[in-house]
Amino acid sequence: MRRPSKKEEMDLTRSLYNHLRSAGYLFSQATQSIEATLLPKEVALELSVKPNRPALVLERTSYSLDNRAIEYIQSY
Rank of each mutant, 00 (worst) to 15 (best):
L12V: 07
S33M: 06
T37W: 05
P54Y: 02
A36W: 07
S22E: 15
Q29A: 12
E59I: 07
S75W: 05
A36M: 06
I34R: 11
A36G: 13
I73Y: 04
S15H: 06
T31G: 06
N18L: 12
S28K: 09
L38S: 07
E35T: 04
R14P: 00
N18R: 11
N18P: 00
D66P: 00
Y63M: 07
T13E: 13
I70W: 03
Y72I: 15
S28N: 11
Q32N: 01
R60K: 15
L16A: 08
A23K: 03
A55E: 07
L39N: 02
Y25E: 03
R21F: 09
S33L: 11
L12W: 13
Q29M: 10
R53M: 06
Y63G: 03
L20T: 00
L65K: 14
R53T: 12
R68P: 02
V57R: 13
D66N: 14
S48C: 09
Y63Q: 01
L47F: 02
L47R: 10
A23W: 04
Y17D: 09
R60Y: 08
K50T: 03
A55S: 15
E35N: 05
E35A: 10
A55Q: 04
A30G: 03
L12N: 13
N52I: 00
S28T: 02
Y17F: 14
K41N: 11
G24E: 03
S64G: 08
I73N: 15
E46R: 12
N52Y: 08
L20M: 09
L45D: 13
V57D: 03
V43M: 05
R68E: 15
P40C: 06
Q32Y: 06
L26W: 08
L58D: 01
R14K: 14
L26P: 00
A23S: 15
V49K: 11
P40D: 10
L47A: 12
E59R: 12
Y63E: 08
N52V: 01
H19S: 13
L47E: 09
N67K: 12
Y72Q: 14
S75V: 04
L16H: 06
R68C: 10
S75H: 05
L16W: 03
L65A: 09
Q74W: 08
F27C: 07
S62V: 14
T37D: 14
F27L: 14
S15C: 04
Y72D: 07
K50Y: 02
L39P: 07
S15Q: 03
A69L: 06
E42W: 04
L20V: 02
Y63R: 02
S62C: 14
V43T: 04
V57L: 05
Y72A: 10
P51S: 05
Q74Y: 05
P51G: 04
S48L: 09
A44W: 00
R14Q: 13
P40M: 10
N67W: 12
G24S: 03
N18A: 14
H19V: 09
I73L: 12
V57K: 15
L38W: 04
Y25W: 11
L65R: 05
I34Q: 08
T13F: 10
A23Y: 04
S22M: 12
I70L: 13
K50I: 09
